[in-house]
Nucleic acid binder design. Structure first.
Length: 116
DNA sequence: AGCGTGACAAGGT
DNA sequence: GACCTTGCCACGC
């Protein structure tokens, strides 16, 4: 897969992340057919222009933490946008992937109350 | 071409 | 948990 195709695949994948859910750079790469190229995902999101809006803030590190340094402007912006969609973000930028992760497809209610 | 750097990940100490 | 190493790859020098 060429570079342009890879970029398009990454952007498409990120646009498919549902509001109120998060995923990791690695998972985006894998779903885009670019397993092992998580670093490229971060790079592409960083370059993504405003003309081509993508929900970059729904992408976290594999451990569920925001990738930016705690306290940085980017960190605060990402936490703010996530919280606005109902995602719980701890002060140090942690998100519970079991509750809000994409393709867990399990609502927080189900998690708390149990499905059956 | 080589080397360092980076919005990463996985495995080990 | 904090680090370190290895694998990954695009970029700028």
């Amino acid at each position: 897969m060429g570079n342009d195709a890879a970029i398009a695949a990454i952007l498409d994948t990120v646009r498919r992340i549902p509001a109120g859910r998060v995923t990791s750079y690695g998972e985006v790469a894998a779903r885009a057919g670019l397993k092992g190229r998580a670093r490229m995902v971060g790079r592409v999101l960083g370059l993504a222009p405003d003309d081509d809006p993508v929900p970059w803030f729904r992408v976290l590190k594999s451990d569920g933490r925001i990738a930016f340094p705690v306290g940085s402007d980017a960190f605060k912006e990402q936490a703010k946008r996530l919280r606005k969609e109902g995602v719980k973000v701890s002060r140090d930028g942690r998100v519970d992937l079991a509750a809000f992760g994409w393709s867990h497809e399990q609502s927080l209610d189900e998690l708390l109350w149990g499905s059956g």
